[in-house]
Amino acid sequence: MKYTTSVNGNTYQIEINSAHQITVDGEIFAVDFESVSHQPLYSLLLDGGSHEAYIEYDAEGWQVLHRGDRYTVSVADERMQRLAQLGGLQADAAGREFLLKAPMPGLVVSVPVADGQPVEKGDLLLVLESMKMQNELRAPRAGTVQRIRAQAGQSVEQHALLLALV
C-alpha cells in the first residue's frame, strides 16, 4: 500500500512493502512496529534506531508526540488521493462547521460572543471554569458564531455542545 504523508510542510512517499519493510522516498528500510500494551503508545525500530511515540487521531489529523515534539501529520492512501483528484474530497476544512464542545465538565463563566457575530482565528469564544482555573476557549479559525447553547453561570458536562462556528 502506498501513502502520501505530509508533516510540517514536508511530503513523503511511503510504501508499506511488508510487515517488516517500508520504502520512504525510494529508500528501503527494515522496520519493526508494535503498539505497547494496547495503549496509543507505539514502538518503532527503524534500521536499528528505536523510537517511541504517542499517536492519536483527532479532527486535525494524526497527532504524534515524539521526544517532546508534537507533529500534526496527514496520511493519504492511494484511494483517498484519487478521490481528492476527482474532486470527491473538496469539502475542505474551512467550509465545515466547527462545533465548540466542552473539553471537560465545568462552569461557564462568560460567553463574550453573540449569535451571528463574525470572529477571527484566536478570538475568545467562551470562558469555562474547571480545576479552579478559568480556561479561555478560542476560535480555531475565522467564522461566524451560531447556535450558542451555553450561557454564563451554567454547568456543562464534558463534550456538551457550547456553540457552532460556521
Partner: peptide
C-alpha cells in the same frame, strides 16, 4: 522551535494509519 524529526513522525503516523486501515 521546529521539531527535529518530521520524517520519523511521518513514518510512525503512516504505520499507525496503515495498521488501523
Amino acid at each position: 522551535k521546529p521539531p527535529t524529526n518530521p520524517r520519523i513522525a511521518a513514518i510512525l503516523a503512516t504505520l499507525v494509519a496503515h495498521q488501523q486501515g
